[in-house]
């Protein structure tokens, strides 16, 4: 295929296109209850075809979802990127974090980098995220990314809330951007590290 998927490096992570080796981790999450807000849980056939579709999405749209890897160990933590299958009203910024990797700021770090990439190199003027209203973790992440609920935007099927991301102008070089990067910085290099643990 002519179009190679770009690679993005962040402080702790490296984002690469979905590869065959990442499938078992993808399957573990998408066949589990964790996938309940993302159209799952899927059966093994559906999960494999969705993984294949993640790759095909890149070819069809020229953008798509990256696999999030640890820079040091190459372990996968989840996926983040752009998503716009047929019937999606607007291009979406989407993410999923494997349950074991949650709570470490990886989704914030990866999604912030992916959004920046689309704004700088993809010509995106904005983006939305379609989120199940019960998916509180994702709503929190959308808010930490500076996205705001847009009650007037068209939804996918009426069962999702639309969060609108700040435009490139409202993000680049602003306090919002600085705050996001500071939060990522605290995850990557916590200011207050325990110097040891009490033995008793």
């Amino acid at each position: 295929m002519p179009r190679d998927i770009p690679v993005i490096e962040t402080r702790r992570l490296i984002l690469r296109g979905p590869e065959p080796g990442g499938y078992p981790d993808f399957k573990a999450t998408f066949t589990s209850y964790r996938a309940r807000f993302m159209g799952g849980p899927l059966n093994p056939y559906e999960s494999w075809m969705l993984y294949a579709a993640e790759i095909g999405h890149w070819k069809i749209r020229g953008f798509g979802m990256w696999m999030i890897h640890d820079r040091q160990t190459d372990e996968t933590y989840g996926m983040a990127g752009g998503w716009k299958p047929a019937m999606w009203p607007e291009a979406e910024i989407a993410w999923v974090i494997w349950p074991d990797a949650a709570g470490k700021g990886f989704a914030l770090e990866a999604t912030h980098a992916a959004r920046k990439y689309f704004y700088r190199h993809g010509g995106w003027e904005g983006a939305v995220s379609y989120i199940d209203p019960k998916n509180l973790d994702s709503i929190r992440l959308a808010e930490r990314l500076g996205a705001v609920r847009d009650p007037d935007a068209q939804t996918i099927d009426g069962n999702d809330a639309v969060y609108r991301h700040p435009s490139p102008a409202r993000l680049e070089g602003t306090q919002l951007n600085h705050g996001i990067e500071m939060e990522i910085g605290h995850y990557a290099d916590p200011l207050f590290k325990p110097k040891g643990w009490a033995i008793d």
Binding site: M1, P18, P20, Y23, W48, M49, L50, Y51, A52, A53, E54, I55, G56, H57, K59, I60, P85, A86, M87
Partner: peptide, 19 residues
């Protein structure tokens, strides 16, 4: 299949080659 499912099916056909 709905149009949306058919789109994913087409994307899946392409991704099958990569996998």
């Amino acid at each position: 299949l709905t149009r949306e499912q058919a789109w994913r099916a087409l994307a899946g056909e392409i991704g099958h080659w990569s996998l």
